[in-house]
Simulated assay, not measured.
Amino acid sequence: MIREYRASDLDRIMAIWLQGNEQAHHFIDANFFKNNYELVKLLIPMSTVYVQDIDGTITGFIGLTENYISGLFVDSAYQHQGNGQALIAKAKQQHNELFAHVYVQNTAAIAFYQSQGFEIDSQSINEETNQPEYLMACRVEHNVKIGKCAL
C-alpha cells in the first residue's frame, strides 16, 4: 500500500536513500552522500513524501517538491517488482506534469523513467557533483486511457 509519510518512517527512508544512492551512483564518491545525510534527513519532512508500505515494511518512497521528484528510491530487495512504478503512479495522480533530474551515467534510472512516460527535456551539469544530468519530464493526461503518461 502507498501511504503518506509519518515521522516514524524517517530512519527507514534514510537507510533506503543512502543504500540507493551508493548503489546507483557508483561514479560519485560515496562520501558525498554520507556528508549530505543529515541535511537530507532535515529536508525529507519538508517534502510531500509517499511510502510503499508492504505489511509494515517500507520498501520505497517518493519525495515531491510540488511537481518535482526530489527523490525516488526502492530498497534493492524490492526492485523490479512494480514498487517504483506504483510510486510514480501515485505522483501522477497528484500532478499534471512531473520532472526529475537523473544522472546521465544512471542508465537504469533513465530507462525506468522512460518506461513511465518521461522524456529527456534538457541536459546540464549538477553543481554539487560536477556530473552531467538530464532533466526528465512527463506530462500527465488525467482520465485518458491512451498515451504514454496517461492515468
Results as ranks from 00 to 15, higher is better:
N106S: 03
D29L: 00
T57L: 13
D53N: 05
I54W: 08
Q85S: 15
I44W: 03
V49H: 00
Y113T: 05
S115I: 06
Q52K: 13
E38R: 07
Q81N: 07
R139W: 02
H95I: 08
A89L: 05
V51S: 06
T65N: 10
K34I: 13
G63E: 01
Q79A: 02
D55P: 08
Y78W: 06
K90T: 12
E119T: 09
Q114K: 15
P45N: 02
N126F: 06
T59P: 03
L98A: 05
C138S: 14
T48L: 15
I28T: 06
Q79T: 12
Y103N: 02
K34R: 08
I54G: 04
Y134D: 03
N126E: 07
Y134S: 06
N36E: 12
F33C: 11
V40M: 04
G63I: 07
D55W: 09
T107K: 10
I69A: 11
R139L: 06
L98V: 05
N130C: 12
A91C: 03
G84T: 06
D53R: 01
E66M: 15
D121H: 15
Q52D: 14
A108W: 02
N126S: 13
Y113E: 00
G56W: 03
A100M: 02
Q79L: 08
S70R: 04
E119K: 09
D53P: 07
Y103T: 04
A30M: 12
A30I: 15
C138T: 05
E133T: 01
S47M: 12
D55M: 15
K90I: 07
L64T: 10
E133P: 00
Q79W: 03
A137C: 10
I125E: 02
G71T: 14
V51P: 11
S47Y: 13
E97T: 12
D29R: 03
Y68R: 10
H101G: 01
N96T: 11
I58G: 11
A89F: 11
G82K: 11
D53C: 14
T48G: 13
K90S: 11
T65Y: 11
G63P: 01
I125Q: 07
K90P: 05
I120R: 07
Y68D: 07
A30S: 15
D75F: 01
A109W: 02
C138Y: 00
Q52L: 14
A100G: 11
Q85Y: 09
H142T: 08
A77Y: 12
D29N: 10
Q81L: 14
Y37I: 05
M136G: 14
Q52R: 14
N35M: 08
F112N: 10
E97Y: 12
C138M: 10
N106Y: 08
Q131F: 04
T57A: 15
G56N: 05
Y78F: 12
L39G: 09
F33G: 09
F61R: 02
H101R: 13
T129Y: 08
T107D: 08
Y68V: 15
S115K: 04
I44L: 06
V102F: 00
S76L: 12
F118H: 06
D121Q: 15
D75K: 04
Q116H: 08
G60D: 13
M136C: 12
G63N: 04
V104L: 05
F99H: 14
S124C: 12
L64N: 02
G117F: 05
G84K: 01
T48I: 09
Q85R: 15
H142I: 08
D75V: 05
I110L: 13
